[in-house]
Design a protein around this nucleic acid. Structure first.
Lengths: 199, 199
DNA sequence: TCATTTATATGATGAACATCATATTTTCAA
DNA sequence: TTGAAAATATGATGTTCATCATATAAATGA
């Protein structure tokens, strides 16, 4: 069952691997790196627990790959919004998307930072490295956009804005009262755009 | 060993209870609500695991009490800073303290929000309620101070500022590169004070 | 179709965990 | 000083977990 020499699609095993990763990424966005057991994860992927180690050498390796997968997804969204439009429109749209009520209610979509930032120190070292690369990429992308907007101190502003984005979504998701959570989102959407001159 | 009728200090049991709670609060600020086992917690308190259930009916009850304890500590600091000084000085000092490198390196002190926000949905229901009360208190305290500063939209600003405080500390702690973490703190310290007219 | 490789399933092992029953120690009033 | 009550320790139970050895099933080249 070695992959044929001619260019064919992904192997059955590769598809299964990807499916396990997708489920892990979704579960971890909901419940953090320790949020799902190997057995529960495999069941969600439609498999049994034993086969796991044919795909990943250890649970830590899964966590690391899943973190990377999450940031790949986020990077694609980020790039779409920031590079395929006018800078002002791109940034405003990113803020509205990032802090939308839809994303608030669907933590398994959206950015992994609000769910994972608080627990990065508990992640396997390799996973934490990927996490930091993801944060750095996000900061650079924002700084580039802010520079295009002509804002002063684009790097510093990027760090500050990212902090508010992440904190606002984390706090909004934490609220048991949905209305209170939505107020947090609304406040940050508005004041972020105000301070970036997008209001 | 019933507490004497005359007013004496706290019972031995009460002191032990408080000691367990303090250890739990410190551990949870580091590693979240699931960060420490009953056995490990009791060992840190200088006791053995079995006695735990003489103090708490369940692990969930401990988590709930520990959350409350953490917010009591924070509330005291918050009130000290915001009520015992000029509003401008109090807010600036709060920002500098909250986002200090010392607090970054000592997660078992400082505010529980950065460590716990991401995982509030996994907390026992009662604990989540206390958590939300803590957030609401923080927001109200900030809004009052911003009102005293004459800022427009003090409530909305309070939500936005709290989000940035929490997000900045969470991201700074997540960074494996200490310098990168410190840049995050520095950026938010400066831009928060700028946008509140305290620079 | 058949034989062989690859992918997945079954079942087991040992560790960590929350919880609890019971034993031991400590405390303090009499 | 002593004995009852309170506080803590010991040890056990059942569960969940990551990991792995091995068995079965599925796929593919011949």
């Amino acid at each position: 069952m070695t992959k044929a020499s001619t260019h064919t699609g992904p192997t059955h095993k590769e598809r299964t691997h990807a499916r396990i990763l997708d489920e892990a990424a979704a579960a971890m966005r909901l419940d953090g790196p320790d949020g799902i057991s190997v057995a529960a994860l495999m069941k969600r992927a439609g498999l049994t627990h034993g086969g796991f180690y044919a795909h990943f050498p250890s649970r830590d390796a899964l966590v690391t790959e899943a973190i990377e997968r999450m940031f790949q997804d986020s990077r694609r969204i980020l790039d779409d919004r920031l590079t395929q439009r006018e800078a002002a429109e791109g940034v405003a749209g990113l803020i509205d998307w990032y802090l939308s009520e839809a994303i608030r209610s669907a933590p398994d979509q959206g950015c992994p930072l609000p769910a994972l930032s608080g627990g990065a120190s508990r992640m396997p070292e390799a996973a934490r490295g990927r996490f930091n690369q993801g944060v750095a990429y996000f900061q650079r992308a924002l700084a580039t956009a802010f520079d295009a907007l002509g804002l002063p101190e684009p790097e510093m502003t990027a760090r500050s804005v990212l902090a508010e984005l992440v904190g606002a979504m984390a706090l909004a998701r934490a609220a048991s009262d949905e209305a209170a959570g939505n107020e947090i989102l609304r406040s940050s959407r508005q004041l972020l755009k105000t301070r970036l001159g997008l209001a």
